[in-house]
């Protein structure tokens, strides 16, 4: 919970998945997770099929499994919740590994664990194989243009702002100050305040610089890679597999 979200996920490579236009990957991911979420929860074999399809995609991407596995930690709070579910849910009791738990909670916990893990793994695969710039180009036309612009500016200055925060911490520490308890919060509050002033002023400078280069409200040239029919058909293999397994699971139920 105290962990930051600032690690970069992109894994440099030239696999088919890396080269695929970002819009194909985005839509594929969206359909894949929707299919996983819509899978009825007691059909565990369906999650197995989804996982199998996803691992084929991971293999194609040539991103090392250990690289993705390490980054699965973002899921931790929800794993805790899923583990607690059988104990806090109400309803019929059942025996599981020698403990009496709620049958409904157990089912819900297991399927939550499966769905969340598949979702995080698929999201990681997208992040690992897609450059932020390509992602923005892929979002162009699918989200309001202004939102894409805001995202573009944010991503562009993300590292600048994070680094500024890091420099402020180094400056504090080089003066012998390390925050260890709530008594030290005012110092950190000043740091956050200073960071806001600096970010805002940087925004003003950037805006003026953009104006002086002829900015009139729209950003030119994100030039999205054109997705061919072939790109789409390859990209849809993974979501098609997930959708098929979800349909089969509904039919089997």
């Amino acid at each position: 919970m105290g962990a930051g979200h600032g690690h970069r996920l992109h894994y440099h490579g030239h696999s088919a998945l890396h080269r695929m236009p970002a819009e194909c990957k985005l839509i594929a991911l969206l359909i894949f997770v929707l299919a996983v979420v819509a899978t009825p929860r007691t059909q565990y074999w369906a999650y197995g099929l989804d996982a199998l399809a996803l691992s084929v995609a991971v293999a194609c991407s040539r991103v090392p499994v250990s690289y993705l596995a390490k980054r699965m930690v973002v899921e931790t709070p929800f794993v805790v919740f899923a583990v607690l579910l059988p104990f806090i849910a109400v309803g019929e009791r059942t025996q599981f590994l020698g403990v009496t738990v709620s049958a409904d909670g157990l089912e819900a916990g297991l399927s939550l664990l499966a769905k969340a893990t598949l979702g995080v793994a698929a999201g990681l695969l997208l992040a690992a194989t897609t450059e932020p710039r390509d992602l923005l180009a892929g979002l162009e036309g699918k989200l309001p243009q202004q939102l894409v612009q805001i995202m573009a500016m944010m991503i562009r200055y993300l590292d600048v702002t994070s680094d500024q925060l890091r420099r402020m911490r180094i400056a504090r520490e080089s003066r012998g100050f390390v925050a260890t308890q709530p008594r030290h919060w005012p110092v950190l509050g000043h740091a956050a305040g200073a960071l806001f002033v600096r970010s805002y002023e940087r925004g003003e400078r950037v805006h003026l610089a953009m104006l002086s280069r002829g900015y009139s409200g729209s950003l030119p040239g994100l030039t999205p890679a054109r997705a061919s029919t072939r790109d789409w058909s390859v990209a849809m293999l993974l979501p098609a597999a997930a959708a098929a397994s979800a349909l089969a699971a509904w039919w089997a139920q």
């Binding site: 805001i150 500016m153 944010m154 562009r156 003003e204 805006h207």
Partner: peptide, 12 residues
């Protein structure tokens, strides 16, 4: 100013 300002505030 929306795009540059909101973008920088989001980064903040």
């Amino acid at each position: 100013k929306t795009a540059p300002m909101a973008g920088l505030v989001a980064a903040f």
